[in-house]
Each structure stands twice: as structure tokens, then as C-alpha cells.
């Protein structure tokens, strides 16, 4: 197993055992900032080398997936689960959107195995973050409402993760590999170390969510475990159809199989305040995130490998 995952376990165990270990919020912010810029820069540098025209149809396909995923999840939750309209819509938004941390663990997983991935994946990460949130709000609210879309779209598009990812992509693109070279020690060489510390904090946060889980019961846990693999499979098949490499197919599956815990909670809290925030946060952070880094990512990798072997 990738050693960075043990840091998540350490944080989880320390949190569950009520250790006084905690990182200052400012450190957590810095670590997530570094991760987002690194992912953006790496993508930008690679994109500058590749054929952009070929990426556009793929990007459109990925956007379509972003709109479709919550529409798959929502009716299912309404039909099967004990969830009200607002809660189901909020969960759909969380699971349609993506988790950057899961993506980073996926990148690290592929690096351990020396598997390359397509340069457009960080761009897909950006594209998948927003649509599901918009659809989730519409599912909860409908089109006719006093929703302040201007303010909301500002919140969604100028959220930290989008700004840093797009900024990193742009800078990487403009500077190219040689221009970025002086920055490599901070952003690329330290990637694993930063990820390890970040996962330590994630373990602590997940532990606090796991304590909420005891009260929320079975439905959230069952959904958090059952949802990611089918959703990831959608991404794997799409990636394979688009002609991505095994690594790229794996990462697209990681994206569709992951659930947002930063952008979606913030947006849903403002737009759909009656939805219970701890319900979707517990599912995405307390259940699905650990599931994905332990079991999900290897499963997506197997699916991607199988698709490529079978389909050639």
C-alpha cells in the first residue's frame, strides 16, 4: 500500500482515540493550496505539450457526465433511501462533484506503479467540480425561485479550489516545463510529503465525521460505500470510450467515483440551507473518502486495466 495512506490511518486512529493531535487550520489551508497548485501546474505543463483541439470534444463529454451524475443519483436516493428532497439533492451534488484529495491519492497510486496518465485529467477535475453543484441546487429548488444565482455562481466559480486549479493550469501552460523547473522542488518534489501531512489532517477530520455517523445510522454508511464503485465505473467506461490511457481511465473513474467535501458543502449550505449538512458531509468524508483511498482506487485501476485488455 502507498505509504501516504498510512498517514490517513494515523490521523483516523488518533482522532478516534481522542488524541490532542491537530494541525492548525492555517496549515491545513496551506497544504490544500499546495496540492491544488501542484495538480494544476502539472496539468498545465503537460497540456502545453499536447494537442488541444483533440481535448475539446473530450472536455464536452466530461462536462456532460458532470451534469448527468447527480441526475442518476437523485432519483435513486428518492426511490430507495429514507431521504427528503433537499437531502437527496444535496447528496447528489456532493457525489456528482469531485474530491481533489482522492484525485491526489490516485495520482500518487499511479506514480507508485509507474503508470502515466493523460495530461488533460487536471482539466477534467476542474470541469467536473461545478456542474453537479448547479444541478443539485436545481433539483432541490426548481427553476422558479428567488435563488440569488449571481452570488451563488460567484461562490462556486471563485471558490478556492477552482481559482487555484485554473490558475495553476494557466501558469503551467504559459511557463512550460522549463519555466516551471525552478518551482519543482516546492511543488513537485514535495508532493508526497505534502500529501502525507494533508492526509493526516484528513484522517482527523474523518474521525470527527465518523462520530456523527453513529447517530445518523445505516443509510448514510450504506450509500457511502455502495455509491462510489458504480459511479466510478461510469467514469472508467467514459474514459475508455474517449481513448484515454489506462492511467487516465483510472483517474477519470477516481473523479466520478469520488465525492466533494469542500466546494459542494459550502455551496449547498448557502443555496439549500434546509438540507442537513452533516448527512452529506459524513457520507462523502467519513465513508466514501476512506473507502476510495483504501478500496476504490485499486478497484478503478483494475476496471481500467480490464477494459483496456478486453477492448484493446
Amino acid at each position: 500500500m502507498d505509504p501516504v495512506i498510512w498517514f490517513f490511518v494515523l490521523g483516523l486512529v488518533a482522532g478516534l482515540a481522542k488524541s490532542d493531535l491537530r494541525l492548525p487550520p492555517a496549515v491545513y489551508d496551506l497544504l490544500s493550496t499546495l496540492l491544488l497548485i501542484t495538480i494544476g501546474l502539472k496539468g498545465g505543463v503537460e497540456l502545453a505539450r499536447s494537442d488541444v483541439a483533440g481535448v475539446l470534444p473530450q472536455a464536452a463529454g466530461v462536462l456532460a457526465i458532470g451534469f448527468a451524475l447527480p441526475l442518476l443519483v437523485f432519483p435513486l436516493l428518492r426511490a430507495v433511501g429514507p431521504f427528503g428532497r433537499a437531502d437527496a439533492a444535496s447528496l447528489a451534488a456532493h457525489y456528482g462533484s469531485v474530491s481533489v484529495a482522492t484525485f491526489a491519492v490516485g495520482v500518487s497510486f499511479l506514480a507508485e506503479r509507474n503508470v502515466a496518465y493523460d495530461s488533460q485529467l487536471p482539466l477534467f477535475l476542474v470541469l467536473l467540480e461545478v456542474p453537479a453543484i448547479v444541478v443539485g441546487i436545481l433539483l432541490a429548488r426548481g427553476l422558479r425561485s428567488g435563488q440569488r444565482w449571481g452570488k451563488l455562481l460567484h461562490e462556486i466559480f471563485l471558490g478556492k479550489s477552482i481559482v487555484l486549479l485554473v490558475g495553476g493550469l494557466g501558469i503551467g501552460w504559459a511557463a512550460g516545463a522549463e519555466g516551471i523547473a525552478p518551482l519543482e522542488p516546492l511543488f513537485f518534489d514535495l508532493f508526497k510529503g505534502v500529501l502525507a501531512l494533508f492526509l493526516l489532517e484528513m484522517g482527523l477530520i474523518a474521525a470527527s465525521q465518523a462520530q456523527v455517523l453513529r447517530d445518523k445510522g445505516l443509510a448514510v454508511a450504506v450509500f457511502g460505500i455502495l455509491a462510489p464503485v458504480p459511479l466510478g465505473a461510469v467514469g472508467a467506461v467514459a474514459g475508455w470510450l474517449m481513448g484515454l490511457s489506462v492511467g487516465g481511465t483510472t483517474l477519470l473513474a477516481v473523479l466520478t467515483g469520488s465525492a466533494s467535501y469542500i466546494a459542494a458543502p459550502a455551496a449547498m449550505r448557502i443555496a439549500v440551507p434546509e438540507a442537513n449538512p452533516s448527512l452529506s458531509l459524513t457520507a462523502s468524508l467519513g465513508v466514501t473518502f476512506p473507502f476510495n483511498i483504501f478500496a476504490g482506487i485499486p478497484i478503478y485501476y483494475s476496471i481500467a486495466t480490464a477494459l483496456h485488455q478486453w477492448g484493446g
Binding site: P25, Y28, L204, I205, S208, I262
Partner: peptide, 9 residues
Amino acid sequence: GIRDAGWSS
């Protein structure tokens, strides 16, 4: 519940 300011949410 506990609002511990551990992170933004």
C-alpha cells in the same frame, strides 16, 4: 454538536 474550527466546514 461540537464546532471545533478544525477546518472550514
